[in-house]
Nucleic acid binder design. Sequence first.
DNA 1: ATAGGGTTAG
Length: 433
Amino acid sequence: MNYTRLGLLHNPIASASHFNQRLLLSLKHTRGFTKLDDALQLFDEMLQRQPPPNIIEFNKLITGIVKIKQYSTTLSLYKQIKLMGIPTDLYAMNISINCHCRLDQVAYGFALLATIFKQGHPPDLATYSTLINGLVLADRVFEAVELFKKLLRDKLCEPNHIMYGTVINGLCKAGHTIKAFELLRYMESGSCKPDVVQYNTVIDSLCKDRMVDNALQLFTKMTEKGVLANVITYNSLIQGLCNFGRETEAAKMLRDMEEEGVSPGVDTFNILVNSCCKQGSVKDAQLAVETMIRRGLHPDVITYNALIDGYCLRGEVDEAGKVLNGMLETNLVPDIVTYNSLINGYCKKKQIDKARHLFQEIQHKGLTPNVITCSTMIQGMFQSRNPAAARELFNKMQAKGLAPDICTYRILFHGMCKNSQCSDALVLFRSLL
DNA sequence: ATAGGGTTAG
C-alpha cells in the first residue's frame, strides 16, 4: 500500500481546499465588499456636501447598488435622503418600489404607489411595469394580468414593449405559455411591435414545455418579420434541442448562429458542455471547453461544475479532482454545487469517509450544505451500510431548518428497506400521510 | 439622461 499517494497533501481535493481558503480571503478584499463600501462612502460624502447634490446624482449611485442586489441597503439610503430633506423624484420612487418587490414586499410597493398619487404626480409606465413584475415575482400572476388589463381598460397608460414583456414573462412563468403566445400575437397586430425580448421569452417557454418545434417555428416567423435573433434566442433553442436528445440539430443551430454573425458566449458553450456530460461523454465536453478557450472565452464555475459532475457521475472522482485543481488555478471559487458533485462521486465509489470529510470541510469554509448535499450524504451512508448515521443526518438537517424533499424521502425509504428496516420505513411513511 | 422586461448551469 502506498501511503504517500493516499496522504492528505497529495489528495487533490484536500490541497485544493487549502488553496480555496486563500481565495476566499482575497475575495473579501477585492470584489463585492469594497465595491459596496466605496459606494456607501461616496454616498455619505455626497450627503454632507453643501449644497447637497441633485437627486439624479443619488439615483445614479444607487442604481449601481441595486445592480449588486443590495435592496435593503438601497431602501435605507433613500430613507436617509428623505431625512436630509432632499426632494426625491419618480425615478427614486420607482427604484424603491422595485427594491420592495425584490424583497418580497409587493404590498409596500403598492403603498408607494399610493404615495405617488397623494403627491399629485401620476405614476408612469415604469412604475406600473415594476409593480406588475413584483406581482409576478410573488407568484401572483393572475393579479399581475388583472392590473395590466385594468391599465388598458381605464386607459391609464399606453403599454410599451417592456410592460408587454413583463406580462408575457409572467404568463410563461405561471405555465400559461399559450396565453403568452396569444399576447405576443396581439402585439404583432398592434402598434407596439414585439422585439427580440418578447420573442425570446415565448421561445424559451415553448422549449421548456417540450414544444421545441413550435419554438423553432416561432423563431422562423420572428426572423421573417425582421427581428434579429440574439445569443439568448439561440441559447434557448440549443438548450431545448439538447434537452430532448436532438444534439445534432443543436450543433447545426450553433453553426447557423455563427453564420448569422451571432457569437456564442460562455453560456452557449456551457449548454453544450453540460449536454455532453449528461450523455456520459465527458471527453466531448472537454473538447467543447478547449474550443471555447481557443476562442478567447473563459470557462466559468458552471463550466467546471458540469465537467466535475460529469466525471463524478461516472465514479471518476480522481479526474474530477484534476478538473477542480484546474478550476482553482483560474481563480474560480467552487460553490456548493461543485462539492455536491464531489461528495456524490466519493459516495459512488464507496469512499464514504472522504465524502464525510468534504462534508465537514465545506462547512468550515462557510458554505452551507443544502438539501441535495444532505440527501447525497444520506444515500452514501446507507450504501456504506450505516443506516444509523443516515438517520442521524436526516434528523440533523431538519433541525437545521432544511426541509427534506421528495428525493430525500425516496433515498431514506429505499435505504431503510435495503438495510432491513422495512417496517420502520413503513411506520415513518404512515406518519407522513 | 437616473428607473421597469428575456436565456443558460447544478
